[in-house]
Design a binder for these strands. Structure first.
Lengths: 244, 244
DNA sequence: CGTAGGTTTGACTGATCTCAAGTTTGGTGG
DNA sequence: CCACCAAACTTGAGATCAGTCAAACCTACG
């Protein structure tokens, strides 16, 4: 179990190294960060909008999402996250959480004091660059989501979300993009794509009937990637993935 | 005219200073940055998706937007910008432009080599912090746009966009939020809100009839801010504005 | 004046939502 | 091991918000 692992930061260091080469010095500085492990259930809040977090949260295992809510109570998920992602890097620099973060599956997280991360960042330019770049890639993904939700039709939106999940999963080293277990419910897909669960269900069936995906419960296969990419209007350039 | 101004960076320095206090040393380093002024017409591209920009672009006068396009050719504007904004800060750290940037009015811009900005950033931690924070606020605004476009109805979306414009204009020191000239066409509002120009037009009329705004051509007055805030579901917290 | 871009209006269409009722599934306790 | 339950998924029918198409109107500018 990761809880008993001496170096929960290995996947983080690998990720940062992909964003900007880290020398041994920088890598050990990350490894030396104080942290606090926590095992949490599904649907557990890690950050709530309006709080002033003093720690940043690294996801070690499981899946999470960030979301905002309208006054009417409608929820919009603004991103999904997987092992290796830092969930609230912005709290290094911004006082108040402008959105909430919660798990969507059982998960393990490591909490690190923001001030200690800031210290490591100022001592190691490569870490500064890697983390800044990570937050810029985050922003690029948000822009793609604005496009997805603003200008694509329902079937394309859902397909795009699936493509992004598969691609990010692969570049995080979590497995092949051809076949995977989706961690989220159709309601969560709906909240991420700006649709209703009922319509998401219909679009998934449509994608199946078209033969671009094969589905069994939450197990998905992309039957035909080139066609899926085209159905989804998916071009992974916005992920700025270092050749994985 | 700014073109003949010796210090086109004053507004930038003021903005950065609001994000993180700059000492005189840091301020002079910004002032010493090499730059190239350009006067451009409305609807002029500053960056095109797919390019590898080597300069960053500071908007000195006028208005601009960033946008992405679907395969079908539908345009989604992902942000609006005004004097003092850096339009493509992400190119400090990311190689390829994942979206396009264009003016929406006549404008003056200053181009600065990314490598020189990077040098100033590594020499001055306060500038590093200020710029990083600026890009995190950008990201927060994108998240709000995902919510706006994904989960709010048409009238609320349009109203929200107007509120954001007014609020950002004020905190950039460009004038009161009570009354202003909107620089964008209704088609541009449509592309920013994920609607059609026809429907934007109807929603503007609806807002007028409700008495929350008064309009004369592109001149807008917010007749009743408390009510407008509520109609727009607008809470400026996501702008993370230093008390302006 | 003539023209082009921007705005406005009306009539009709259609994608997506809503509501409501089933069905399946995975987990829990008897 | 089975029965039950809640959550998730599925399906259908009807309603609605926003889109489409088309035309007219303004107005700034050459």
């Amino acid at each position: 179990m990761l809880a008993n692992d001496d170096t929960p930061f290995d996947s983080l260091i690998r990720k940062l190294g992909r964003l900007e080469p880290l020398n041994d010095d920088a890598a050990s500085a990350v490894r030396a960060l104080p942290f606090r492990l926590e095992q949490v259930a599904a649907d557990h809040h890690l950050v709530r909008e309006g709080e002033r977090p003093t720690e940043c949260c690294l996801l070690l295992r499981g899946f999470a999402c960030r979301y905002k809510v309208t006054y009417e109570g409608a929820r919009q998920i603004v991103s999904f996250h997987m092992a290796g992602d830092i969930l609230d890097l912005q709290h290094l620099m911004l006082e108040r959480a402008d959105h909430s973060v919660m798990t969507i599956t059982e998960a393990s997280v490591a909490w690190m004091p923001a001030k200690d991360i800031r210290a490591v960042v100022s001592a190691h330019p490569a870490i500064n660059t890697a983390l800044w770049r990570d937050s810029l890639i985050d922003a690029s993904i948000f822009r793609e989501w604005v496009l997805n939700v603003g200008r694509r039709d329902a079937k394309t939106r859902v397909a795009h979300m699936l493509c992004e999940f598969a691609a990010r999963r692969e570049s995080a080293g979590l497995g092949s993009p051809e076949a995977f277990e989706l961690p989220m419910t159709q309601e969560e897909i709906a909240d991420a794509t700006g649709l209703t669960p009922v319509h998401v269900n219909r679009m998934l069936h449509a994608l199946e009937e078209e033969g671009v995906i094969v589905r069994n419960k939450r197990h998905f296969q992309i039957a035909d990637w080139p066609r899926m990419r085209s159905v989804a209007d998916f071009d992974p350039a916005y992920l700025h993935a270092a050749a994985a």
